[in-house]
Nucleic acid binder design. Structure first.
Lengths: 200, 200
DNA sequence: GGCCGCTATGTCAGAACTGACATAGCGCAT
DNA sequence: ATGCGCTATGTCAGTTCTGACATAGCGGCC
């Protein structure tokens, strides 16, 4: 069975044939929002998929010492991908360095921690703007059978995630900024607990 | 410089001395929500921290062939941890198998994909209930200088994340359930885009 | 004429992590 | 009395991934 990256590669190839280089580019931008890989890893996994008969390639002579290889799915590859899609995901361990830093933030100067969160917030706000403009590029929500439905649904998730993250940064900043250094100021009526405010 | 897990260990030890076994337990529950590790990895990293002089231990005779070792921070370890807290986190690549599956979901039967999301939603709703009860255990929001501020802030983030995730599952299910199999039913006025509905 | 960036392929050492194996006393339940 | 689970330590093979190294043609800029 391929690794998860293997399935990511198959998922991209299901939308059309690509070279390893092009796969690397796709892993950098659209797919990279939820699964990244360097070209070295992609080449390694492509060898494995090839050995398992899930992909094949057409060689063309390209730049550099080697031939350019345009990969495409085999029927077996498509079948493996289809079977994988509806299998429950293996629970990947959450690994979130910012939350870990927050867990230890009681040790640090609040003003410095606030700097950290201001930088993070700016980053998230930038991504929100970027995702929103990408969402606006869809004339209407794609329907289920089209490949672009996958893009749209992933984008929706990414946007929702960035907003959650930005909200958290703002909540942290409200606590942090209210206590500048060592004087007795209290953060009282700042941002509230995340008790559902969308009304249901 | 220690690995991120190394700092996670330091962050736990900053709250009190622990054995490797106890660290494993903590990595399973409170810290495990944002940074997990198996005991094998913890023992390996503990050796490195020991070699770097960031932790030391007191040996007591415990069960099993080896002595029980109670680890605590050295002043150097505390300094390293304090310095790390306010450094910007290295951008960890997003790796989200469910979103990857969603990206390829146009290939699968919507009814089966819906099953996947129903299971995920149930999981998130369970965690929300769990986190909410944990949040209720805090009489009031801890103040910045206390260790429990770190716990509270991490919990706030976790709760917000689970709600975002549950929202996304519900949005997906609204699209998925409206198109049972192959007949021409359209999902029209279901759940809307994540355009800010909290009003600000 | 030379350098940079883009296309395009690959290798390799080392870090980080998982899952299985290995050892052993103590207390509790059947 | 036997076996299970908890405490407690550790090793090791194998997987996944990163970052650096290596090669090379083609087109554009200065």
């Amino acid at each position: 069975m391929p690794s998860t990256l293997g399935f990511a590669i198959l998922a991209v190839l299901a939308r059309g044939a690509r070279t390893g280089y092009e796969l690397t580019a796709v892993m950098g931008r659209p797919v990279g929002y939820f699964w990244t890989a360097r070209h070295s890893q992609i080449h390694t996994d492509l060898q494995k998929l090839l050995a398992d008969g899930l992909v094949r390639f057409e060689a063309e002579h390209g730049p550099g010492p080697q031939d350019k290889k345009v990969y495409h799915l085999t029927p077996e590859g498509m079948a493996a991908l289809r079977a994988w899609v509806t299998e429950p995901p293996r629970a990947r361990p959450e690994r979130d360095e910012l939350v870990l830093k927050t867990y230890a933030s009681w040790l640090a100067d609040p003003a410095e921690v606030a700097g950290l969160f201001r930088a993070q917030l700016a980053l998230h706000e930038e991504r929100i703007a970027q995702y929103e403009s990408q969402q606006a590029d869809f004339a209407e929500t794609p329907s289920l059978g089209e490949p672009s439905f996958g893009n749209y649904a992933a984008l929706w998730c990414g946007l929702s995630y960035e907003r959650h993250r930005a909200d958290w940064c703002r909540w942290m900043l409200a606590r942090l900024d209210a206590t500048p250094r060592a004087d007795g100021l209290r953060a009282e009526g700042s941002s509230e607990d995340p008790r559902r405010d969308t009304g249901h």
